[in-house]
Amino acid sequence: MNDQDLHNLEQELRAMTPAALTPELLDQCELQLFGANLAAMRPAGLSTDQLDACEHSVIENELHSLAPRALEKSFLDQLEHIPAEVGLMELEPQPLSNEFLDKLADKLENADAPVAIETTEENVIPFPSATQKSPAKNWKWYASAAAVACIGIFTGLTLTNPGTTNSPLAANQAADQFQPISSDNLQNVSTESTFLQAQDRGIVLSNGSNPTHYRAVRVIQMETVTLKNDAGQTIQVQRPVEKTVLMPVEAD
């Protein structure tokens, strides 16, 4: 209904006498006027803030539709153990006994002192005593060495020296004192080992699938072999012997 129609309706209403207006007619007129007023209304435009709010709501809904990436199964398995791990963390290990603590303190205080190595009997190679009589395993070597030594000494003392007098007085004098010993049938009389020196060479590790720790000790001895021939003459031969002794030790 446009403005002209409204105007015409108003004119008709004014021309009508009050007695002619029945309640039904009045309602009809009011409805028509109300409808006309509604039609004349213009919807108000949405403000910028209102538009932004609408868009924000749309964006919120779109964000809600995005699903956060789920936990990987392996990671979930790892996280599942956390309560058990926390339970284990609450367990306290048994405290050290006073006896063990004293032993540790003692070890730390005496850290510079030589460490006593505990080994089983069969693994212990005892240090030789100052004089130890033991049969030489290779005494024949000593016999050979004694024979060569005798020959060498005799030759040195009897041969003339070009720079000296024809008759070497020292050689004659030595020859008087030195009686040559026959090297035939030299027999071992005794063998002695004299301990001279021991040096700690540190800890070594054996090869193999089950390595064992050893303490290496360098031992220097002097072996003295006394030999006697058929004539009852004796000769002593000395030779230094160096050995490396390995002693099993306990290691962490």
Partner: peptide, 15 residues
């Protein structure tokens, strides 16, 4: 339960 709770809520916390 612990695992079930993680399956429900873990992804958004990890996000």
């Amino acid at each position: 339960g612990w695992r079930a709770w993680l399956e429900v809520h873990g992804s958004k916390l990890l996000l």
